[in-house]
């Protein structure tokens, strides 16, 4: 391959829901410790693609994948890959904050406990570190034993990111992580994404064009299951190559 470090690659990837061809021959290589944004109209396949990156679609009936998805050069759909191991590497944050109905502390260390970690000091340290990383520590340090559901939506989403970080993944997938948040919480998440890319590879699906422009290094435009254009974000938003991309980002679709 080229000199660049690609964390995630899709090669000739096709995905189907039964007879519906949801992703058509996707080829893309995502750079390590960079933010890649997926944009495109609803139903274009961007979320399907995001979810194939940590095999979230495995249990959907009739879903199947052809082609390769490589994480650090290794095919994540290979037979010997354990999905739970894969998800330690590839964390995910969803559109709606989904904290567990537990305390703030229990939420953050949930993944570690599932993995069998019991050392209270390590758990406490990891919780603090993850909450600091998401700039939540100062806001919650005095109520770690309170229910996570009492937090605001923006705080809940940052908690979910902290929960994802606690198991030290190298990739974080975000599916419209701010679409349910107010502008201030959105700004905090965006700031966080900017900070996190020093240590993580981030892939984000967003319907907010300006958000893609603000937070991402690369942007991929999907349309009807195809990857129409993939380029540096600043190129995509100043001089896109394809007319369909231009029509979409300038709001002249259809």
């Amino acid at each position: 391959m080229s000199k660049k470090n690609y964390k995630l690659e899709a090669k000739d990837l096709n995905a189907y829901y039964g007879s519906f061809h949801a992703l058509k021959n996707i080829n893309i290589a995502m750079e390590e410790k960079a933010v890649t944004a997926f944009i495109g109209p609803s139903g274009c396949g961007k979320s399907t693609f995001l979810r194939t990156l940590n095999r979230m679609n495995d249990y959907i009936e009739g879903f199947r994948v052809e082609g390769d998805i490589l994480l650090d050069g290794r095919d994540i759909y290979a037979k010997d890959v354990r999905v739970d191991e894969l998800r330690k590497e590839v964390g995910m944050v969803f559109q709606k904050p989904n904290p567990f109905p537990k305390t703030i502390f229990e939420n953050v260390v949930y993944g570690l406990k599932i993995q069998g970690l019991k050392d209270k000091r390590v758990l406490a340290e990891t919780a603090e570190k993850s909450l600091r990383q998401t700039a939540l520590w100062d806001e919650v340090k005095d109520k770690l034993d309170k229910s996570a559901l009492a937090l605001s939506g923006g705080q809940q989403q940052r908690l979910c990111i902290a929960r994802a970080l606690a198991i030290s993944p190298s990739v974080i997938l975000m599916d419209e992580p701010t679409s349910a948040l107010d502008p201030i919480s959105t700004a905090k998440i965006e700031e966080l994404i900017f900070k996190l890319k020093n240590d993580y590879t981030i892939v984000i699906v967003t319907h907010n064009m300006q958000q893609a422009g603000r937070v991402s290094d690369y942007t991929a435009f999907f349309y009807m299951g195809e990857l129409v254009e993939f380029a540096k974000t600043r190129t995509m938003f100043t001089s896109p190559k394809h007319e369909r991309t231009q029509n979409y980002i300038t709001g002249r679709f259809g």
């Binding site: 660049k4 290589a29 690369y218 129409v228 993939f230 380029a231 540096k232 190129t235």
Partner: peptide
């Protein structure tokens, strides 16, 4: 110079 790594 818009050679990102567009492969599409």
């Amino acid at each position: 110079n818009n050679n990102g790594n567009a492969i599409s």
